[in-house]
Amino acid sequence: MFNYLEYVREENFPHIWCSGCGDGIVLKALIRAMEATGMSRDEAVMVSGIGCSSRTPGYVDINTLHTTHGRAIPFATGVKHANPGLKVIVVTGDGDATAIGGNHFIHAARRNIDLTVLLYNNYIYGMTGGQCSPTTPIGYKASTAQFGNIEPTFNISGLAIAAGASFVARADVYNAKQCEKMIGLALEKKGFSLVEILTPCPTAFGRRNKMASPVKLMEWLRDHVVSGAKWEKLSEEDREGKIRSGILIDVDKPEYTEEYKKLTEKLRAV
């Protein structure tokens, strides 16, 4: 059996996440992916913002930085730029990264700085009690959208691709093995990489939307998320209402800290 204890700060358990929350599944997938890449824990830094997902770093025994709401990516950018030898992982959520931190998210992707961003998308502001987020689907209820949300949503992965990310994948916690695989690929990618991870929030999202049981939300993921290979076989019609998972883009382009290093070497050679 895989020994998770080597990677966690046991003294900080039990974790703060609610029963049925998917964040613990992501944590385990992340730990397994970290182990698979063989990264040095001394040289790994995990940076988060504010929210349920952003509590992940507290449980992982590496260098961890729990910052301000929406600002994980700027802090991570500072860490990575200052010491490119460090492996920098950002853990964030749909509200943290695409509402209050939206500007940082797109600019880090544009800059193509070598950060691995794990964005837990649970369609809601969980920690503050279930307010509407940029990914709450139209018609779904939230504590600040009690008559049903009327705002269109962000396609987070699409946003990152458009902004210039070199690796973008979507995964979900129902397919935990695929989630682990996507995180692993993102960790190994040079450049800005994103894994958008769909994860259930029964407490703040499910309860208001007739899916209070964690099982119901897991079933929702099972029935709606379609991996890349299967997606290709679906007709336009069958794709309606489904979400594609797997690798969405994987390209090689110049990475920020490497370009900066080249510039510095050129200047210093003169």
């Binding site: 940076v47 930085l65 910052t67 301000t68 600002r71 990516i73 700027p74 802090f75 991570a76 950018t77 500072g78 860490v79 730029h81 200052a82 010491n83 460090l86 500007n103 940082h104 600019h107 900066y260």
Partner: peptide, 22 residues
């Protein structure tokens, strides 16, 4: 290391992050 960030908030965040590396 020099970096022009996307806004003032980010510039402050990056400054703190960099300081944590020494």
């Amino acid at each position: 290391k020099f970096i022009q960030m996307e806004d003032e908030i980010a510039a402050m965040g990056a400054t703190i992050g960099a300081s944590l590396t020494g």
